[in-house]
Design a binder for these strands. Sequence first.
DNA 1: GATTGTTAGTGAACCTTCTTTACAAACTCG
DNA 2: CGAGTTTGTAAAGAAGGTTCACTAACAATC
Lengths: 385, 385
Amino acid sequence: MPTTTRTLRPASKVLPEHARVVHRAMVLQQLFHGGPGSRADLARSTGLTRVTISDLVGELLAEGLVAELGQAHEEGKVGKRGTLVGLRTEAFRIVAVDLRDDELLHGALLDLSGAVVDQRSARFTEPRGEAALADLTAFCRALVGAATRPVLGVGVGSPGIIDAGGNVLEAPNRDWYDLPLAARLTEALGVPVHVANDADTAALGEFTFGGASGAGLLVLTVGQGVGAGIVVDGALVSGHGHAAGELGHVTAVDERDDDGPLGPPLPCACGRTGCLETVLALPALRRRVAGLDPTSADAALASVGRRLGIVLAPVVSALNLAEVVLSGPPELLGGPLRDAALAAIRERTMPVTSRGLQLRVTTLGEAAPLSGAAVLVLSGQLGVT
Amino acid sequence: MPTTTRTLRPASKVLPEHARVVHRAMVLQQLFHGGPGSRADLARSTGLTRVTISDLVGELLAEGLVAELGQAHEEGKVGKRGTLVGLRTEAFRIVAVDLRDDELLHGALLDLSGAVVDQRSARFTEPRGEAALADLTAFCRALVGAATRPVLGVGVGSPGIIDAGGNVLEAPNRDWYDLPLAARLTEALGVPVHVANDADTAALGEFTFGGASGAGLLVLTVGQGVGAGIVVDGALVSGHGHAAGELGHVTAVDERDDDGPLGPPLPCACGRTGCLETVLALPALRRRVAGLDPTSADAALASVGRRLGIVLAPVVSALNLAEVVLSGPPELLGGPLRDAALAAIRERTMPVTSRGLQLRVTTLGEAAPLSGAAVLVLSGQLGVT
DNA sequence: GATTGTTAGTGAACCTTCTTTACAAACTCG
DNA sequence: CGAGTTTGTAAAGAAGGTTCACTAACAATC
């Protein structure tokens, strides 16, 4: 009897063509992360036979997704040289859109390696409701039109609660409720569209391009608001109700913190007080350090970092995370804030938990949300992450 | 192009026989949860064809796992009556062992429905090291020998950090380090053995028998220590380093809580102070309420509940959990403690997070850890959860 | 009571995809 | 140059699913 993995609820049946999809994805995944290789190399790294790999590669060649790159040259190796096969990263384009900003639509064209080929922005005529959707559609259409190569798909990172099918359940910022955004855009553009929460796309971007281990990753996006995307055991956590990662409105400042360096809990847009967002969102951070001398500013940032660490400690412990990534301006998040957060986490969790923990600021910078949206497409269309 | 689910890293190849295993598990799963049904019923609920189901059922009949139970009788339905097929829950036994106690080994024989058929305990001659392993082996052997039906497997819930292969990475209470417990026991007993962390087995038990939704479940085990098992998106969270759920040693009481009803942070066995365990573990709870009149005792329990809620709030938010279950004595955990914890969580998280949240004490009672260990076997051997 | 329509279960033929086996081509090394 | 390796592909075989076709059993209706 085979030792099954500890994955419960298999849910849906398995057909030969599903196996094909999985194996295809494995080949693409290997080429994506491992770079070009011979068919024999692919066979070894995937565990499939050379025969099967030949067949799959033939299929991918026909679709134009991969190309033969000539002979492998390795000195001192006996035997026939393999034919290198590589992903044609330059032959396709991905459209990525970031909807986090209330005023500007941010978008980019990327190739399959995730490199940004073209980047542009547009102003919302109206950032809410059907008008916003119309703006978004036009923006996407323009990006798709600007592509000089076939477009593999469109990835959109949007604030709000979004299910796995790309339906926006609620996005107060855009006044969207129960909007089948992916379906609407797919229909309008004639191109596959994938939509996910902006923090989730950030997490995907970090997972794929940020060198994240994938064993347990939390990406905290710090902007107008605060959100989080979580990858556990190689999969995004969506949560019951698809609202996982809503860390921005967890209480971080108590009444009893009155006397502390942070001052009393501040009122939050959500109607409560002391939410993490009231101290960690960019406007709050900027306000807090404005006009302070460097030493005081550092102390102020550290006090925010400490509160962040206190909120994160239970999450890090519960999930035994390997990595926490702060996504936002490094000049605010990178220094004392990060250090204080990490110190607080270490202080408040077991060594076994904090021992392997990394806490760092994203290395992807500005492009992070767009890279993540691109991963949405890579994952959805090619099975590559 | 098929819309793949958002599961990243397919990892391993898919063969026809894997498909068979999955489909077999789907049939068993349906019979387990849905009770007996005709082959046609199974075809409808699994999505497989009647032909395939016939084939699979034939295989299961031959193995003795299922039996035909006569004709289905439904009034007012046209057509031939189906032959009911049901799991032979009485025909096999599962051995479940709970290693949480430092003095006693707890074990049981269960049938495939999870009902306890026989229950027994034994005293450790020595609860640590190789001696403890010898005790455990003998105890298991006795249970397996006592079974009057074929034993499907042995499930063990143990404290400590345990990987998916049943290797105990570290279990200080038993002085076990890097012990391949599942392999050792399998070899000694000649029966498949599955081992997991006690909190994880508790979570599995709750997931399977406690009517948990499965969309997001955290089971907090409160005993000598405090641990947690987490099921997210239908799978146990193991964590980088397999140490997920280590909530017992998250700081829950701060220095600044000195003046509060809980008093100053207490020293913890782990060397730090103010850990959740120092207020929530059973000894701590009992000590706190000892000799108090009911009103004061309730207040004391509520103050502990509040600290628990504060620790859980970030976790509940981050994972958008559907359900938190407290596993332990209901007389301590059920009343004011639970209420205060839930109140604290509601107070400190967004409505969208707390709205769908259930917080309750386990309904499985004493049998919870053993049921969970049994699920380990059901899951490992039959794919049923 | 015969007929009609529906449902259950199974056998036969076929499809897909993987594997095993076999082989030619290309390369290194002695 | 022969021996041994490695690559890539063709042909045959195995596993497990599906569709199609059929028989059996049953309710309802004429």
